[in-house]
Design a protein around this nucleic acid. Structure first.
Lengths: 235, 235
DNA sequence: TTTACAACATACTGAGTAGTATTTTATTGT
DNA sequence: ACAATAAAATACTACTCAGTATGTTGTAAA
């Protein structure tokens, strides 16, 4: 993405401040406001003027950094995807055992969704948008690139699922379908979850853990009891 | 919704054909095309001309039956919701035992999603749209009404979950969160599922059943083995 | 065959908005 | 003080598109 590195006057560059890959404060503000707007009104329902208004600025500021509304959206998406990736990869590297690793990953995914609901709801919109017809070839290219990362993300889960399957712990017929079920349950949080005033980090973590447990272990209190009571339900 | 009952000339009414609540063929065609367009391009990304083009007609035909794009969307939503309701309520009345009833409901939900993917993707969009700002008060009213039905739908699942909880079969802390997880996994199908040429009714049913099993029973092959191997994972 | 109307098609308007072209302001090096 | 430039604001254009106003046609009752 052609994102200029902003300076102040001619000073910064002249003073030899090297170009950093970290987006500057001004761009971060734009991304935050854009994420919020896209979450609240959707990509198509948000005008650049809406984002500018939330910034307390005008279009000029946004178009100085982004050549189009789509590219702005894509950058928000990229940031949201990065945060998801980092959280889940960190959970993967935990020393949990097979099933525990999966649990940790799903929990991390869910928690990241809640902690970055604006960015992650843009990610979810992006996934849906992929099915829609992206207008220009340029936009389609970027979207494909983003979806490649998204696929990598899903593959993290599929890999762990496969490993559990091979270890004999998990009963899974269709790995992809299974992953879509789990990821769907978590992604759906982008639709219904909005932080409440009393949502402390602990509350969020508990919710994330509960979702994770449910997706991995299901709803049964005690399966050995269950299979007696409902033998026809066992596969 | 002010939907005129179309006739041919002055004949139908004069001939004493009583007004039916069943939408006429022409309206069904409009609904089908609209559902398809909304699925492929989203509500905001679809113009009335797009729908008309797919119909092989012009705007006039659509605006003769619908006073606005939003009302057309809402009618598609209503139809999709009706189909979901019918399927899940039928599954509820099955003579399955507690857990079996839940299984049947989730399976019916998933199957209906696949069999009516265009309409159901509109339903999913509507749920998301509810968070967005609906423009006019009239539209907000209709949307609220639709979401009330949607809530009833979710309550069907919550009720069965509660019953399972009281019977001691299901280990659920937060009924609402649990339902959102299950429904999220199924709703997410609207994003990724598109019928394939080789998707027979049997294949669809197998997929629906697999999703349902996963959501109810989780992924473990054998929990008694599991809790030994991973005692820290048990709650 | 005439009339009345349903069921459209056609032509138009106005509002919103993505993107651009131009101008302004603040800052810094000289 | 002044020149140069980053970081915007302002002003403008072109275009889409929801909704409307009006015209057209086929059909059926009289």
């Amino acid at each position: 993405m052609p994102r200029p590195i902003p300076n102040r006057g001619r000073g910064a560059k002249a003073r030899g401040i090297e170009e950093s890959n970290e987006p500057v404060e001004s761009v971060v503000e734009i991304l935050d406001c854009a994420a919020q707007c896209f979450m609240e009104m959707g990509f198509q329902g948000t005008s650049i003027d809406d984002v500018a208004r939330r910034l307390g600025a005008t279009k000029g500021r946004i178009y100085y950094y982004y050549s189009s509304k789509a590219n702005l959206f894509f950058d928000v998406h990229r940031e949201g995807m990065d945060r998801l990736m980092k959280a889940v990869k960190a959970a993967m590297k935990s020393n949990h055992c097979g099933t525990g690793k999966l649990l940790a990953m799903v929990e991390a995914h869910a928690l990241t969704m809640m902690q970055n609901i604006a960015y992650e709801s843009v990610v979810v919109q992006g996934v849906q948008m992929h099915r829609l017809g992206a207008t220009t070839p340029e936009q389609r290219r970027i979207l494909d690139e983003l979806m490649a990362v998204r696929k990598q993300f899903e593959e993290l889960f599929v890999d762990v699922l496969r490993q559990g399957q091979e270890d004999g712990n998990l009963a899974i017929r269709d790995l992809s379908l299974c992953a879509k079920g789990i990821l769907g349950a978590v992604n759906w949080m982008a639709v219904w979850y909005r932080p409440r005033a009393d949502d402390s980090a602990e509350v969020q973590k508990k919710m994330a853990r509960e979702i994770a447990y449910q997706q991995v272990y299901g709803l049964l209190r005690d399966v050995s009891d269950q299979v007696e009571a409902y033998p026809e339900c066992r596969r």
